[in-house]
């Protein structure tokens, strides 16, 4: 599913070029649960951003499901992010003025109609309606159903109208995971998802990733914590922009 060959990334900082990723080769199969470990500044986050189509490599090729990300336009990259990728961050990154439901609903805003129709076809749960003939109203109803479903899955059905500031850290991270899962993405990319949480809440969050993984989803997770990493099937060590083992 993911195929990286010779990927490097350089930043220009004050006229000096800094190499963050150096010649990375990596392939990730569909349905893997992968942990990435390494000290700060080893390039973990940059690698994750590149995998998540938020950033482009300076050199090398990245094929996501056969599409070359290097050549993709902004619109195509945004399309990948909307339909294939869910992000979970250490600091949750929820929009403070929106409530739980609206935060989870957000990705629908940017899945343009074709994707939304595709999405509905993919997740046609009751199968009673012919997806081709679905009206906007039905799409709206299904969208609402889907949002409610993932919120229920993360256990926040009683918090729909709460703003992020009224939630605990664990709850905020659950909202973020619900947001990442709502479009039925192929993979979830998590940047230290348990970093700001106590270990108990951290475990609960990891359980949610496992549920997604057991349903056939790919999870790529950055962590500092060996215990957290032990939940993954595979662990990748990074140092100075290179993969040390795999």
């Amino acid at each position: 599913m993911i195929e990286l060959t010779g990927v490097s990334k350089q930043y220009q900082i004050a006229g000096n070029s800094v190499s963050v990723l150096k010649d990375i080769d990596l392939s990730i199969e569909k349905g893997e649960f992968l942990a990435i470990m390494g000290p700060s500044g080893s390039g973990k986050s940059t690698l994750l951003h590149i995998l998540g189509c938020l950033d482009r490599p300076t050199a090398g090729t990245y094929h996501l499901e056969g599409n070359n990300v290097f050549d993709a336009s902004d619109k195509e990259l945004s399309g990948f992010r909307a339909s294939h990728i869910g992000f979970v961050f250490q600091n949750f990154n929820l929009i403070p003025v929106l409530d739980v439901f609206e935060n989870v609903e957000l990705p629908f805003l940017y899945s343009h109609f074709k994707n939304q129709a595709d999405f509905i076809r993919r997740s046609d749960l009751n199968g009673k309606l012919n997806s081709n003939r679905k009206s906007d109203f039905h799409a709206q109803v299904e969208k609402k159903q889907r949002v409610m479903e993932v919120i229920k899955k993360v256990g926040l059905s009683d918090r729909l109208k709460h703003k992020p500031s009224e939630l605990s850290g664990g709850e905020m991270q659950r909202v973020a995971i619900a947001r990442a899962m709502v479009m039925n993405p192929k993979m979830i990319l998590a940047d230290e998802p348990t970093g700001n949480l106590d270990s108990k809440t951290g475990h609960e969050i990891l359980e949610l990733f496992k549920i997604f993984h057991n349903a056939g989803g790919t999870v790529i997770m950055i962590t500092h914590d060996i215990e957290v990493a032990s939940n993954a099937e595979k662990c990748l060590q990074m140092r100075d922009g290179r993969i040390v083992n795999s």
């Binding site: 619109k75 945004s78 992010r81 339909s83 990154n93 929009i95 957000l106 940017y110």
Partner: peptide, 16 residues
């Protein structure tokens, strides 16, 4: 700015 980043991460294009 951060909200813009979040929106971009969940799939907003530049034109959005």
């Amino acid at each position: 700015t951060r909200e813009i980043g979040i929106r971009r991460a969940v799939g907003a294009t530049q034109s959005d």
